[in-house]
Design a protein around this nucleic acid. Structure first.
Length: 423
RNA sequence: GGACAGGUGGCAGAGCGGUUGAAUGCUCCGGUCUUGAAAACCGGCAGACCUUCACGGGUCUCGUGGGUUCGAAUCCCACCCUGUCCGCCA
């Protein structure tokens, strides 16, 4: 983490903001330590730069003397000693900055003021859309899927292992249909630019969006230190890493389909049946970059874009405002979209729409210039799934299930799917 | 994977180890002139960090990291990236 000064501005906010979180006790000592380190760091910088200024000035003198063929040995000897002094101080400085950076990268984002206190139990349902179908007589998707020959869990286990699935014939075609339908909707009606991005990314990219260093064990990593993306948010947001955008270029909206890879360490056995939780799944993602003053409304807009997918598919869902303790590490405010799956009798998260404030922009150094000539400021980043495929497929298989076990294809998907029935 | 070539400011493109954070041109911004525009002319135009109430002062950055040196864009080493050719290949 390089932007230590601006990060330091966050320390006070974290101090107060973390009261809203459950893990405050664990964070407080680290914040205190960071402040000590920062004080030492600045003191060292002052001392080092003072000496460097001296050395620069004397070096000019040396040059002048040599030009005039005069002896400068005394000055050179003094500067050699000063150089050694600078070197040891810089060594100490580097140690402080290393430790400080490590701490700062581990500090979570601060929830916005309108995020409820408390943990998962304090999540708030802000609205519900559609009529949830009664569960009576509806079979879970894994039964229907296997019966229709579109879902092959055994094949996935054989080819790769538990947590990997194979979709066949109509199931595979359904994936292709969802991909095109969602991308067309977002590019044609919601104004997103479509991108096709790498599925393997480097360490800097993973750090920029907040997956690293804290969550390295959640990601698949290759021998040459590349990571399989857990979401398209990672490559999409990092497309603008290190850039300074013109104010007129905001808000910027990007969308992409990608597969997503998650190790889901520790999740075994819990809600993992069928398609509910898998190591590789498909998703269309929305990412927005906005000026700070409009990010709140941009989150509502983006969430609306994700909801629109569910509405067009005719799938009943509800919108949850996550409480502080349930909000992710990088997020300042998150809405979860949960679709109703009558076969498994549960609301399933199909989208998570978040406002990250400056959190990711600081790490990835994404800024914009409010007006020509003004200093660059950090943008706010937002993103949301729209939508994740497996649970959307679950909802389709269960919500549109007919008594004979066949499944009606939602109207909007029929042109893409090339039919109106899964049978 | 192998062999060469190269990585300098928004772009193009200079740069004998010593006022080079960086010539020059273009773009862009402001101004003069003009009925308006163009042209011409004048001026401005990187970022980060430390410090200051402020004016200002200071440090760093010429792909990245290390080294040599009193002093590095300039010399040495490693790595990364780009281009060209060869090999391989969807």
């Amino acid at each position: 983490m390089h932007d230590l000064r601006t990060l330091r501005d966050n320390l006070e906010a974290l101090r107060s903001g973390m009261r809203r979180r459950l893990q405050l006790d664990a964070l407080a000592p680290r914040i205190d330590r960071a402040e000590v380190l920062d004080g030492e760091r600045r003191s060292l910088i002052q001392q080092v730069e003072e000496r460097k200024a001296k050395r620069n000035a004397v070096s000019q003198d040396v040059a002048r003397l040599k030009k005039q063929k005069e002896n400068a040995d005394d000055l050179v000897r003094d500067m050699r000693a000063l150089g050694d002094e600078i070197a040891t101080m810089e060594e100490r400085l580097a140690e402080r900055e290393q430790e400080l950076g490590d701490i700062l990268l581990q500090l979570p984002n601060i929830p916005l003021a309108d995020v409820p206190d408390g943990g998962e139990e304090s999540n708030r349902v802000v609205r519900t859309w559609g009529e949830p179908r009664a569960s009576e007589g509806v079979r879970p998707h894994w039964e229907i899927g296997e019966q229709l020959g579109i879902l092959d869990l055994a094949a996935g286990a054989k080819v790769s292992g538990s947590g990997f699935i194979v979709l066949r014939s109509g199931g595979a075609r359904l994936v292709r249909a969802l991909m095109s339908f969602m991308l067309d909707l977002h590019t044609r009606e919601h104004g997103y630019e479509e991108a096709w991005v790498p599925f393997l990314v480097n360490r800097d990219t993973m750090t920029g969006t907040g997956q690293l260093p804290k969550f390295e064990e959640d990601a698949y990593r290759t021998d040459d230190d590349l990571f399989l993306i857990p979401t398209a948010e990672v490559p999409l947001t990092n497309l603008l890493r290190g850039e300074i955008l013109e104010a007129s270029a905001l808000p910027r909206a990007l969308t992409a389909y990608t597969p997503c890879f998650r190790r889901e360490a520790g999740a075994a056995g819990k809600d993992t049946r069928g398609l509910i939780r898998v190591h590789q799944f498909d998703k269309v993602e929305l990412v927005r970059f906005a000026p700070p003053e409009s990010s709140a409304e941009q989150l509502e807009l983006l969430t609306g874009h994700a909801e629109r997918v569910l509405q067009l598919l005719g799938l009943p869902y509800r919108v949850l405002l996550l409480a502080a303790g349930d909000t992710g590490f990088s997020s300042a405010k998150t809405y979860d979209l949960e679709v109703w799956a009558p076969g498994v009798g549960k609301w399933l998260e199909v989208s998570s729409c978040s406002n990250f404030g400056e959190f990711q922009a600081r790490r990835a150094n994404i800024r914009y210039r409010p007006a020509p000539g003004e200093k660059p400021r950090f943008v706010h980043t937002l993103n949301g799934s729209a939508l994740a495929f497996p649970r959307t497929i679950i909802a389709i298989l269960e919500h549109y299930q007919r008594p004979d076990g066949t499944v009606t294809i939602p109207d909007v998907l029929r042109p893409y799917f090339g039919g109106d029935l899964l049978a």
